[in-house]
Design a protein around this nucleic acid. Structure first.
Lengths: 266, 266
DNA sequence: ACGATCAACTGGTCTGACCAGTCGCCTGGT
DNA sequence: ACCAGGCGACTGGTCAGACCAGTTGATCGT
């Protein structure tokens, strides 16, 4: 047993806890603990009013908090009540997006962060992937190549949808192969934040003509990554990931940001 | 001009935008754009009701959303209205914490993620730090050494408070030196999540006697990191960061987790 | 000059109401 | 027998008005 020295009693300032907070906490706890799995439904608001014994405004404010955290979604008229969504990386993206917009950081940090996360995902995947992972990745790159080929021929509009779906699938498989879901989720969140924050601000010179070109370059990059993964060369895979991001964003960066970005290159 | 192919008209499903959403968006925009700087005040709720021409519940739900995003804080009875906090990293921590609690296969992922983030912070700091950064880091390590020394002598209770404060300061300076606040914030958030998730679960064998020992080891580690930073050896600094985490947690890991942790070692 | 008091606020909560959707059932026509 | 249409009985979204407890600053009595 240790005795508190005088003046350091360890007492915590007690702050009032609002009713809506405790409601939100109880529900969030249920969701995070795995009761109330994704897809399940919350009781109707008026039913929650009875169960929690609070007013409807309190219930509604609690639900607003949960909704803004991305844990639930509600739709007017739905007789089943609000839908539980589980935890998604969207909130993380939003938080990152706000941070990137604020003075606390900037778009270059976001890119740099992506370089780190992507590279490390690749590195882990290179060491831990299975043959099946590699087969699926090859398949996805082939599909991307087909897409890019068709887009390059010019007689059909570029099917960006299929392409980006294959691209997303590629990164999903890499994530699985890396064995670290958290890393992958963060990478995705940062990716989304980058797309939101940068692509909208920067004058994106992606005319229809450039689409096929971007597809080709992206396909080539992914092909190289698969090769590096196949030879279990983690360092090379990581370098590829970093370099690709650097190449695609460096034209838009200020000289100062460029220096900092370069520091993350290898 | 390109013509939409039949069946792919590019129309977006239009979903109704709630009143509270538009209120929240308007206020968030003002905050993020720099009007309404941190420390400034929002009008009182009843005043916002007049300005936005909506009911008070709508205003309150909007404020709840902003509050749960950490952008504002309100206190009952405050005649100045809600306080603008600006963008804070707390939301990021919460989002990461939720992610960690739900999509996690085990504590190993969390540790692995920390290994990556810490290592990359060190690597960047090694390349970008200034002489002043290095001086401050040396100072902090000296303070840690003093603490560890005093705790080792045994005639006073170990001053864990001062020690952990110096430790936190160390990581803050590294974060500044790395030039990437985002990386540091995530590392911090994951650190907190680790403390929450692991230390409570694992039987933490940190009796009073072990405190001095842990302090000594931690001091030695930080000293080595400072050396690596000083010689601008990014790779070595990164390796040190990874290894330290691996060493401190590997005794508690299952053989399978160990394999995966080892994959992130270098 | 100073401390107690009080009135005018604040945000937090509750109640009750209305609206526009949504869904299930039930009925009427075929 | 079947299906379309309509009719309720719900849902969540919004509003209005009230009360409470807490904060604050001016006011008043000493």
């Amino acid at each position: 047993m240790s005795v508190d020295p005088p003046g350091r009693t360890g007492f915590q300032p007690v702050r009032p806890v609002r009713a809506y907070q405790r409601v939100a906490e109880q529900i969030e706890e249920r969701i995070l603990a795995g009761h109330l799995p994704p897809g399940s439904r919350l009781p109707a608001e008026r039913e929650l009013v009875r169960q929690f014994e609070v007013g409807r405004s309190t219930i509604r404010e609690a639900l607003r908090v949960l909704q803004s955290a991305g844990l639930i979604r509600s739709r007017p008229g739905d007789p089943l009540g609000a839908e539980v969504l589980g935890v998604s990386p969207d909130t993380l993206s939003h938080a990152l997006g706000r941070l990137a917009r604020s003075h606390l950081s900037g778009p270059a940090e976001l890119i740099q962060f992506r370089m780190v996360l992507d590279a490390e995902s690749y590195r882990l995947a290179a060491r831990l992937h299975t043959d099946d992972d590699l087969r699926r990745l090859t398949e996805l790159v082939d599909r991307m190549a087909d897409c890019a080929q068709a887009a390059g021929s010019g007689n059909t509009p570029p099917d960006t949808h299929t392409f980006s779906q294959a691209d997303a699938g590629f990164h999903r498989v890499v994530a699985e192969a890396s064995g670290n879901a958290l890393l992958a989720l963060c990478a995705r969140a940062v990716h989304d934040a980058v797309v939101d924050a940068i692509e909208s601000t920067l004058q994106h010179a992606r005319d229809e003509g450039g689409a096929a070109d971007r597809m080709h370059r992206s396909t080539r990059h992914h092909r190289l990554v698969v090769e590096a993964l196949g030879s279990r060369d983690g360092a090379r895979a990581a370098r590829l990931g970093r370099q690709a991001l650097f190449d695609s964003y460096s034209p838009h960066m200020s000289p100062q940001d460029l220096t900092r970005l370069r520091a993350a290159l290898d």
